[in-house]
Amino acid sequence: MESTGIIPRLEVSYPDDVLHSYQYCGQDVVLTRKKHILDICSFIRDQCAMNHLMFLCAVDNSRRKEAIGKNEYERFEVVYQFYSMTTKHSIRIRAQVPDDDCSIESITSLWPGADCLERECFDLMGIHFSSHPDLRRILMPEDWKGHPLRKEYPLRGIGEWAGYETLKEKSLELRTFDYRSSQKGNE
């Protein structure tokens, strides 16, 4: 697939934000800083006809030590995949999000459909999307502690979820009402 020509335009318009760009399997990828992500997305949508947000997800790079050492990668990155309905081109933006300031501008003002995707990112990776209209957990229960897809999160979780403990207590309490085969009624 031929190049979209967006990368050079981005490099001209946002020289301070574009960290690195490359092509992989014919796909254009741009690594950016997070500060002007809303402007970059708005530029891509309005100036480059990238009108469709295919997906939005987050990556935890904490185990890619050599990559973080290069000063291009931060601990987290939010990955945006855009597609153009008119030119049939696609581009991927990888916005770097540091561990100590784990937040990024929400793009719900540009694509309302990003709402649920950003909530999922927040829920599982703990990235805060500022100016998101309703940043709540979407998959885990609302009172869940921690963000399960972070690399430091243990597979079996941190402690037990309070709701599940309540359920087990309740089922223990209701067990006295269960039918027991040893218990015989009127024959």
């Binding site: 597979l155 079996r156 979780g157 941190i158 599940y164 087990k168 089922s171 269960d178």
Partner: peptide, 15 residues
């Protein structure tokens, strides 16, 4: 699925 999100058997809360 021996993970944080999955109940390890229905008999934990049902007979």
């Amino acid at each position: 699925f021996d993970t944080y999100a999955v109940v390890q058997g229905g008999d934990n809360f049902l007979p």
